[in-house]
């Protein structure tokens, strides 16, 4: 099993990571799609040994721990947010809200930011 550069770019988009292609200039911190493709293929080559395992007898995969999920203790309080508000850690915050660049909801909304 090997993976193509196009596939790597699709996966990167899915994971919200930026990679640069052959035709783009390298930028600091931006991994190269070509190199990632090579690396992933080397790893996948190793992982391919899994195909040799006989899993025919395995029904449900194991779960650790084997007990069912416990229910919350009725008295459990929410853990503290120390200094109080999520505002302290928010990169952008206004009037009690986290802010991000405007997300367009509809096709004919204006493109965000441009």
């Amino acid at each position: 099993m090997s993976v193509s550069r196009e596939e790597v770019e699709r996966i990167a988009a899915l994971a919200r990571l930026d990679v640069f292609g052959e035709d783009e200039p390298a930028a600091e911190g931006r991994p190269s799609a070509v190199r990632l493709t090579e690396e992933l293929n080397r790893i996948l080559e190793h992982i391919a040994t899994l195909e040799e395992a006989d899993i025919s007898e395995i029904g449900d995969p194991i779960r650790l721990p084997s007990d069912p999920v416990p229910f919350r203790d009725p008295g459990l309080e929410p853990d503290s947010l120390a200094e109080g508000a999520p505002a302290d850690r928010a990169p952008r915050w206004r009037d009690g809200f986290f802010l991000v660049p405007r997300l367009p909801a509809l096709v004919d909304d204006e493109e965000d930011g441009s």
Partner: peptide
């Protein structure tokens, strides 16, 4: 909740 119409150019998030 994402609120798109409260701030100009920004989406406000209430968790």
């Amino acid at each position: 909740k994402s609120i798109h119409d409260r701030f100009e150019g920004a989406t406000a998030v209430d968790l």
